[in-house]
């Protein structure tokens, strides 16, 4: 990683002096003790109520359990990937409409962005689950998850992309224009590639939200990780253990996505303007 950049730590704090260091040490010990105590209380309660009994956990010794969860995981990943692509495409179009300079397109896009950002995902799910079938449109369960989740994300994606476009220095566009490039070339070859690099971290955060939103699949009976977990629970009566494992799997997915974003950011770091240089 580039060492020239201000990390959040640098931005908020200056290097601690002797007094501060002592305070930090004490606070560290105290908070570690508090966390350990909390953990102990939780485990203790689990033990007392029998949640740690083998019968709740033996389900994970079966190969079929893992295969079933794996299938659910595939469903989740598939839905999240498709929803991510749809949301990005729709978000890109909304952003282009908004910055197109055409007043009417701009108003339409702004209205759509505000609408999709303001309405909770669950309402879109209900819309596709309950309202759309009333018009005789039969969608597969997969799309009843993907479409609402992408609609709910596309407005945010549009705004994230727009903020990236605004962050590209005006001189970049001018340099491309002065070469005689046409407006669409200027945008697609010079402005947008840079804007996209700026917003990779924000887009990744949105992708994490998309992954989490796919858990609404249980509403429409699409077999994703969450839905399959529910099936396991009702079959084995192992609520806590299954949810705990499923939570860990979600954490792992989103951790991997974040790692990928850090790697992507690192790869584009060499394009950054070093501190102290005018550009």
């Amino acid at each position: 990683m580039s060492d020239k950049r201000t990390s959040v730590k640098d931005a908020l704090f200056e290097p601690p002096g002797p007094k501060t260091r002592r305070v930090i040490r004490i606070a560290t010990v105290v908070s570690l003790a508090a966390i350990a105590a909390l953990l102990w209380v939780v485990l203790r309660r689990f033990y007392e109520t029998g949640q740690l009994d083998a019968r709740y956990w033996s389900v994970f010794t079966r190969w079929t359990t893992w295969r079933f969860l794996g299938k659910g995981l595939l469903g989740t990943l598939e839905a999240a990937a498709v929803a991510g692509v749809v949301a990005f495409t729709a978000g890109f179009l909304l952003m282009v409409m908004r910055i197109s300079g055409n007043r009417i397109l701009g108003y339409i896009s702004t209205a759509l962005i505000e609408f999709t950002r303001g309405v909770p995902t669950l309402l879109f799910i209900y819309f596709f689950f309950l309202v759309v079938p009333k018009f005789g449109i039969k969608l597969p369960a997969f799309w009843k998850v993907c479409l609402p989740v992408s609609i709910s994300a596309c407005g945010v994606v549009a705004e994230v992309l727009r903020s990236g476009v605004n962050a590209v220095p005006k001189g970049q566009k001018e340099a491309a224009q002065s070469l005689g490039m046409l407006p669409h070339s200027v945008f697609l070859k010079v402005v947008f590639p840079q804007a996209f690099r700026f917003v990779i971290p924000a887009l990744i955060s949105e992708l994490v939200i998309v992954v989490k939103d796919t858990t609404f699949a249980y509403v429409v009976n699409f077999p994703d990780l969450m839905q399959n977990a529910k099936v396991l629970i009702s079959n084995y009566d192992a609520l806590l253990s299954v949810y705990l494992v499923v939570a860990l799997i979600y954490i792992a997915i989103n951790w991997l996505i974040n790692r990928a974003s850090v790697a992507a950011a690192g790869r584009t770091n060499r394009y950054a303007v070093p501190a102290g240089k005018k550009q």
């Binding site: 220095p169 001189g171 970049q172 001018e174 340099a175 070469l179 005689g180 046409l182 590639p193 550009q279």
Partner: peptide
Amino acid sequence: GKELARLRAQIGMVFQSFNLFAH
């Protein structure tokens, strides 16, 4: 439009802040 772009292509420009394509 295209006519403007065509004429711009015939006139080079060098800026104070270089404006090289950063990516």
